[in-house]
């Protein structure tokens, strides 16, 4: 518990770094591009899946 209580406070330096940056907020935290890229890849798979799903739901086909 002591290690958690006496941890370094990094908020002031992060405030300076975040406020200087001119990037959009969703790309400002560390590793944002990696997270965004991974998310959008899975999102694209989801959208393709949803489109084909809606088609098979309308057609009423239970197997491809």
């Amino acid at each position: 518990m002591d290690a958690l209580v006496h941890r370094d406070n990094k908020v002031p330096e992060r405030q300076r770094a975040y406020q200087v940056s001119t990037k959009p907020i969703y790309l400002r935290p560390p590793r944002s591009r990696l997270y965004m890229g991974t998310y959008l890849t899975f999102f694209a798979v989801g959208m393709v899946g949803t489109t084909t799903s809606i088609y098979s739901l309308i057609k009423g086909k239970k197997t491809e």
Partner: peptide, 26 residues
């Protein structure tokens, strides 16, 4: 759109359509 994926695939899963479970997890 993520919510659209979740709800559409939930309907697929409940009604026994192919790949409904995988898409619901996604």
């Amino acid at each position: 759109f993520a919510l659209l994926t979740m709800t559409t695939s939930a309907v697929m899963y409940f009604h026994g359509f192919a790949n409904g479970g995988e898409l619901l997890t996604l």
